[in-house]
């Protein structure tokens, strides 16, 4: 069976996987990082979004072996010393979640957006969230959260 090595949230990890093991299965089932969620399992909902080499991807639509040698970042890696990342803080402050199931994917997707566009307009946020579904909030507060999070990150020079 294939061996994979990668960094996850900055830590080196190695694992034995099957060829068909999905990246999200490696993260959740073998590494215990259950912050990354499986929502639809059909590449549509975006609850499983993580970053691979700095780019947001759907970890349910990537094989673990395809991430061999990559730097993977998940929601668990965002808070530092118990302090939430400004984007996470913004979701809390703006009531950007109700059940919270989609939130890890929303936050990881939002951070990829902010990388390209530090000050996204409401339209740009909505377009970017094409691949992230939320069944509770109607998106209004998520959009607000992401704009607030982006503003906080600009303020913090991140």
């Amino acid at each position: 069976m294939p061996q994979v090595s990668m960094t996850v949230n900055g830590k080196a990890v190695s694992a034995t996987v099957e060829g068909r093991t999905l990246l999200v299965q490696l993260l959740r089932e073998q590494l215990g990082l259950t912050g990354t969620h499986v929502g639809c399992d059909t590449s549509q909902c975006g609850a499983c979004v993580v970053h691979v080499d700095g780019k947001s991807v759907k970890s349910c639509t990537m094989l673990a072996v395809q991430a061999n040698g990559a730097a993977v970042a998940t929601i668990e890696g965002l808070a530092t010393n118990g302090k939430l990342h400004p984007m996470q803080e913004a979701f809390r402050d703006n009531h950007g979640l109700q059940c919270g199931f989609c939130t890890p994917g929303m936050v990881m997707s939002a951070l990829d957006l902010v990388k390209h566009n530090a000050n996204p307009s409401e339209t740009q946020v909505r377009e970017w969230l094409e691949g992230n579904l939320c069944r509770c909030t109607g998106y209004h507060n998520i959009v607000k959260s992401i704009q607030a999070g982006a503003a906080a990150m600009r303020g913090a020079g991140r």
Binding site: S43, G46, V49, K55, S56, V57, K58, T61, M62, S109, D112, L113, W128, E130, G131, N132
Partner: peptide
Amino acid sequence: IGDPQVRNR
């Protein structure tokens, strides 16, 4: 095409 995550892969 698709969404940002699909376009990234």
